[in-house]
């Protein structure tokens, strides 16, 4: 671990925020729940949990957190990790991905599986992690534009795919995944994100 000062926040409006906190704390990082705009000012890292994206989006706007979030992202003062519904929020906050909701079907299609990490990714270079245990629960599909990938100026990187669809992607200060590492208790992405 390096000596950077990091302050991790977890958006705690709705969804699996308590599970994310347990993950960070198990790694030795303290973190706070974010439920208003003042708390948002204090942090360097923000986790957007799984839950209902429509609910979270609405509340972020009503609590006047949306503009502050956008500002902090613009000024590169905030790193963001979005899981499942949180990935949908990332796509609204400027990450160059689009999302198809419920693309894998209803609950009976939910699945826990190992996904393989792309060895050319920054993630692999930093962590040497080859596989991640991923829980897809009524998961959204992450869609990456061909033009984004072929654009040299773009820093968007696909860290892992499942059945030829990106499921874990990174771009500048954003990491987004369509699964739930907090459900399988896979720590690798947290470790990478907290050191980012």
């Amino acid at each position: 671990m390096n000596n950077k000062i990091i302050n991790i926040g977890i958006l705690a409006i709705q969804g699996s925020f308590a599970e994310h906190k347990e993950m960070c704390e198990a790694l030795g990082y303290s973190c706070i729940f974010i439920r208003n705009k003042d708390e948002l000012e204090k942090i360097t890292h923000l986790i957007l949990p799984g839950g209902e994206s429509t609910t979270m989006l609405k509340l972020l706007k009503e609590f006047k957190m949306w503009e502050i979030l956008k500002d902090k992202i613009q000024n590169k003062n905030l790193k963001i990790f979005g899981t499942c519904a949180g990935a949908i929020l990332c796509s609204h906050l400027g990450m160059n991905i689009s999302i198809e909701r419920n693309a894998y079907g209803a609950q009976q299609n939910s699945i826990i599986t190992d996904i393989t990490v792309n060895k050319n990714s920054e993630f692999y270079k930093n962590t040497a992690v080859e596989n991640i245990s991923a829980a897809f629960i009524r998961a959204p599909k992450i869609i990456v534009n061909h033009s984004t990938l072929s654009n040299r100026a773009s820093s968007l990187e696909i860290i892992s795919e499942y059945k030829n669809t990106p499921v874990l992607v990174e771009e500048n200060n954003f990491i987004a995944c369509s699964f739930h590492p907090e459900i399988t208790k896979d720590y690798s992405i947290y470790e990478y994100f907290c050191n980012k």
């Binding site: 705690a12 409006i13 709705q14 969804g15 699996s16 925020f17 308590a18 599970e19 799984g50 839950g51 209902e52 609910t55 499942c84 519904a85 609950q107 009976q108 299609n109 939910s110 699945i111 826990i112 599986t113 829980a135 629960i137 009524r138 739930h180 459900i183 399988t184």
Partner: peptide, 19 residues
């Protein structure tokens, strides 16, 4: 690969917390 296990069943309930 696992499907329809207790982890996945109780996991969906976790996503509804606070709602």
């Amino acid at each position: 690969e696992e499907q329809n296990t207790f982890t996945l069943k109780s996991g969906l309930a976790k996503m509804m917390k606070g709602g």
